[in-house]
């Protein structure tokens, strides 16, 4: 079972594409894309256990800090660069987005929607939100750059990224009515303008 945002990401990736998956975790997405789309590529991952899991899946993985890890890759090497559920934990969001489009033609990011209605309810009740998408307490969270879809779109415009596709997911399915409140996860595909 693929995570809901990964299903959406896979749907946007054409067969035989060369993929870079930043923060690839246990290599689930890359293994899936290899087995179903005949894709090839690399994952970048920092955690020892995840690197081992990738090797067990026969996924090519490079152990590095994401922000440094992009230096391994020459310009225009990939069709698509994926950053799933990681953007919100990056120190330098702008640099990462720019780097994604240096090494790849398309970028795909997914991130938890901080504007999800349950999060708003938590805030109204006086607490930082804790949900399946952002399951951390405020004092031990890796998430330092949470945002909403509209926030991301503003940044994308400022960085000159052209958004080609967007999926706002609630319970794993795209929603189109009150989507900024109903969606718990946002997924964007973008390219150079």
């Amino acid at each position: 079972m693929l995570r809901q945002d990964l299903v959406q990401i896979a749907a946007w990736i054409p067969p035989n594409a060369r993929i870079l998956d930043l923060g690839c975790g246990d290599g689930t997405l890359l293994a899936h894309l290899r087995d179903t789309h005949n894709c090839s590529g690399y994952g970048v991952e920092i955690a020892d256990a995840s690197v081992l899991a990738c090797v067990r899946r026969r996924v090519s993985v490079i152990q590095a800090d994401l922000e440094a890890g992009l230096r391994f890759f020459p310009d225009d090497m990939f069709d698509t660069v994926v950053l799933s559920q990681t953007l919100q934990a990056m120190r330098n969001v702008e640099a990462v987005l720019r780097e994604m489009l240096r090494v790849g033609r398309h970028g795909i990011v997914s991130f938890p929607n901080f504007g999800y209605w349950r999060h708003a309810v938590s805030l109204l009740a006086g607490h930082m939100p804790v949900s399946p998408e952002i399951p951390y307490q405020w004092y031990d969270t890796p998430n330092i750059h949470l945002c909403t879809p509209k926030d991301f779109e503003l940044l994308a415009a400022r960085l000159g990224l052209r958004i080609t596709d967007r999926a706002l997911l609630a319970g794993g399915v795209p929603v189109h009515f009150l989507e900024h409140l109903r969606a718990s996860v946002a997924v964007y595909r973008f390219e150079r303008r």
Partner: peptide
């Protein structure tokens, strides 16, 4: 070792790299 990894990546080779602490 990262220099080697970069060069192999630039050649599109199947390469995995682990940095053991």
């Amino acid at each position: 070792t990262r220099e080697i990894v970069s060069a192999l990546v630039a050649n599109g080779r199947d390469v995995s790299y682990a940095e053991i602490d």
